[in-house]
């Protein structure tokens, strides 16, 4: 996460990486507010978190990591996210096809109250278009 400049700005952390998917988190800092009057986190911060989580899950869902740009992403905002609290996003792969990886994700602050649901579709660029050491570069520091 520290290698992706905007994820570093958000101080995004990888909490868990497994075959089941990824769990990322970030602190709902006041710089990330989208409604100052109500002290709510900007929906765009949730979208960055979701895109990063779904993209990470997509790459990790492949046998050999490939570069996977986002084709499209949809966010459903179930309820507002409060500033000053930590946000968690779990993302997982629903289907790996020959050229596409389908993913879903969920964001929450209280585990029983989902804040946003995301659906992300990613394109596989294939091993030959993926730089050597890509996986180590991306995940070496956090996932080991």
């Amino acid at each position: 996460m520290t290698l992706i400049p905007h994820c570093k700005v958000l101080d995004m952390q990888a909490e868990e990486v497994s075959d089941e998917g990824v769990l990322l988190s970030l602190q709902g800092d006041k710089r990330f507010v989208g409604n100052a009057e109500k002290q709510l986190i900007h929906g765009g911060v949730l979208t960055v978190l979701m895109d990063t989580a779904c993209g990470s899950a997509a790459i990790l869902g492949l046998e050999q990591p490939e570069v996977c740009p986002t084709v499209d992403l949809r966010m459903d905002h179930y309820r507002a996210a409060e500033a000053g609290r930590r946000l968690y996003c779990r993302a997982w792969v629903t289907r790996v096809a020959s050229q596409i990886v389908f993913t879903e994700g969920l964001i929450w602050q209280d585990s029983e109250l989902p804040i946003a649901k995301g659906t992300g579709t990613f394109m596989r660029l294939g091993g030959e278009r993926t730089p050597k050491g890509f996986a180590e570069h991306l995940f070496g520091q956090e996932a080991g």
Partner: peptide
């Protein structure tokens, strides 16, 4: 802003940042 980059190798903007920008524009 270089702080909006998602892929430093290209460099390309973070897709989530583009989404956040477009959502802000809509708001």
């Amino acid at each position: 802003n270089s702080s909006n980059v998602g892929n430093p190798l290209l460099p390309a903007l973070h897709g989530g940042v583009i989404a956040a920008f477009m959502e802000t524009a809509a708001i």
